[in-house]
Design a protein around this nucleic acid. Structure first.
Length: 209
DNA sequence: TAGTTGATCGTCT
DNA sequence: GACGATCAACTAA
């Protein structure tokens, strides 16, 4: 339990890593605070062979990190206001990665609330009201790729972070049996929408809608 | 409750 | 110059 995953974990085929990531613990250290979330939903993006991938048209300044060796964090900015975090997989030059779509908050929930109630530079979000916790749970904390980044304080500065370091890493957790893993088409994707490369844990209430 | 839209900007065409 | 691996407020019914 809570053992940092080795480099070799990330160097395997992307679809295998994607399914294995379910149930693992995503850990983020901010100053002395440790934030932990259990990974419950991911999407795989298979580089040059996948029209939905940022890496489809080859390497650019933006997607450079996708082509690094597996086990790094690829963070990108989208829709003028959101960040999304990906785990780079396989060997250097492949351009393959896995988008983290949702986690179940385990530790550091108070700090996550604070992170979500404010924009990334610390000023109050103009449109978004204080974080609402409807029904007394914290489902809205990290049940979406951009929300997850917000809650965990991940922004452009974290692009390229080595997941074998201490700032951000993924730790061993439970192994989800194949029968509990649901695969569907990916969300918000136009090209390559026939590929069922979104994986989530069956019945888990923290999965995005 | 389903469908629409505003916010907002780096990146690629 | 257009648009996106998004989110949530708002509108209509």
């Amino acid at each position: 339990m809570f053992k940092k995953l080795p480099r070799s974990f990330y160097l395997r085929p992307t679809l295998t890593v994607a399914k294995d990531l379910l149930g693992k613990y995503f850990c983020r250290r901010i100053d002395r605070q440790l934030l932990i979330g259990k990974i419950v939903e991911v999407e795989a993006y298979l580089g040059e062979t996948d029209p939905a991938s940022h890496a489809y048209r080859g390497q650019t300044i933006r997607n450079e990190v996708m082509f690094w060796e597996g086990g790094h964090l690829y963070v990108y900015f989208t829709y003028g206001m959101h960040f999304c975090a990906n785990v780079v997989t396989e060997e250097k030059g492949k351009g393959r990665a896995i988008l983290l779509r949702a986690v179940e908050p385990i530790k550091g929930i108070k700090l996550m609330c604070r992170n979500r109630g404010f924009t990334t530079d610390g000023t109050p979000a103009r449109r978004s009201p204080p974080l609402r916790t409807a029904g007394g749970d914290y489902r809205m904390l990290a049940n979406g790729p951009a929300k997850l980044c917000d809650a965990f304080g991940i922004k452009k500065a974290q692009n390229g972070t080595d997941l074998l370091g201490d700032e951000i890493y993924i730790a061993n957790g439970e192994t989800i049996p194949e029968s509990k893993i649901i695969s569907t088409i990916r969300i918000g994707v136009k090209n390559g929408s026939d590929k069922k490369w979104r994986f989530y844990i069956e019945g888990n209430r923290w999965v995005s809608t």
